[in-house]
């Protein structure tokens, strides 16, 4: 029996989280098939066929799959399910949207957002926004699993020679219609995938003062985040919010500026590789999880920080 990974793409290019998902699937079994459902998605299929971990690519072309509407994609995955032990997708807005539909129609209880594979039916997943880890065993015959992409490395992308098999699409009367997608236009990397994140909290005192953060973000090619307190105070829009009720980030470097470290903020960033805290209150809880803490007035520290960065010959991007 084999595993079916459902790939995320934009019809011309594979989304990188699919590679993390393929790698996670390889911890379960080596016989990995990848479904590419899209519209004229030959190029995506070729990309996946070159991934050495993949044995077979299933290509299903239909205009109905162009915008990966969950209602349209689900019947195809359900039809293929019988041949597989595991159905796997990434636990981002792509996988979260359709996988529970597939699971429900197959009468399977889905295992969401796993961060570790212990065995074919045994997984670890964070609950309570990462404040606890649950080890779970799925007793369903077929497993529907979504993978937290940032917990697995991406699979290598060259050297593979998987076969590409065309399969029929399953077309159903449409109950939903795609209108448009507005991609967030920013010079900076996306918060969820940025290598470096610098966030400001209530200590920033105003939205205007975020220019101090922005200047460093530009220098480090970092995404800009914020605590809920800063968002609630109106300093910055809520799509920057990091925390249990905002975005969960796991960058290589997280810099928390003027953030005390409320539980709900820590839940969104404490898995970061290196954490820096800059705060004038030496007792702030953020220091207890920071690798490097600087007890200082941020209005003095941030300009100095920028100055020191300017002195460096090279900065990783």
């Amino acid at each position: 029996m084999s595993i079916l990974v459902i790939a995320e793409h934009d019809n011309s290019v594979l989304k990188t989280f699919s590679l993390n998902t393929i790698n996670a699937a390889s911890k379960i079994d080596s016989d990995i098939h990848v479904l590419v459902a899209g519209n004229k998605c030959e190029n995506v299929c070729k990309e996946i066929a070159a991934v050495p971990l993949v044995k077979k690519v299933l290509q299903s072309d239909s205009p109905n799959y162009e915008n990966y509407l969950a209602e349209n994609l689900t019947p195809l995955v359900v039809k293929l399910a019988g041949k597989y032990t595991h159905l796997i997708a990434s636990a981002n807005t792509f996988g979260k949207n359709f996988m529970p539909r597939v699971a429900a129609l197959l009468d399977i209880s889905q295992v969401s957002d796993i961060i570790k594979v212990n065995g074919p039916d045994n997984f670890v997943r964070p609950i309570y926004a990462g404040n606890a880890f649950a080890t779970v065993k799925s007793n369903d015959k077929t497993k529907c699993v979504t993978i937290r992409p940032t917990s697995f490395d991406p699979a290598p992308t060259s050297g593979g020679t998987a076969t590409i098999e065309k399969i029929d699409s399953v077309n159903i009367p449409s109950v939903s219609k795609f209108i448009k997608r507005e991609e967030t236009k920013s010079e900076r990397p996306e918060l969820g995938t940025a290598r470096v994140v610098i966030s400001g909290g209530r200590g920033m005192k105003s939205g205007e003062n975020f220019k101090l953060i922005n200047a460093i973000a530009d220098k480090l090619n970092a995404a800009v985040g914020a605590s809920r307190a800063a968002v609630d105070a109106g300093y910055i829009s809520n799509d920057h919010q990091v925390g249990q009720t905002g975005k969960v980030v796991v960058p290589d470097l997280y810099i928390a500026v003027g953030i005390s470290g409320a539980i709900q903020h820590l839940a969104g960033m404490k898995e970061s590789k290196i954490i820096v805290a800059i705060n004038k209150d030496g007792e702030a809880p953020i220091f207890s999880i920071a690798d490097y803490g600087l007890e200082a007035d941020l209005f003095e520290a941030l300009p100095q920080f920028l100055e020191e960065l300017n002195k460096l010959n090279t900065i990783q991007k």
């Binding site: 399977i108 964070p126 649950a134 779970v136 065993k137």
Partner: peptide
């Protein structure tokens, strides 16, 4: 329920 919770631990 189809999923057995084997263990809950602190991260």
């Amino acid at each position: 329920n189809r999923i057995q919770q084997l263990k809950v631990e602190e991260p």
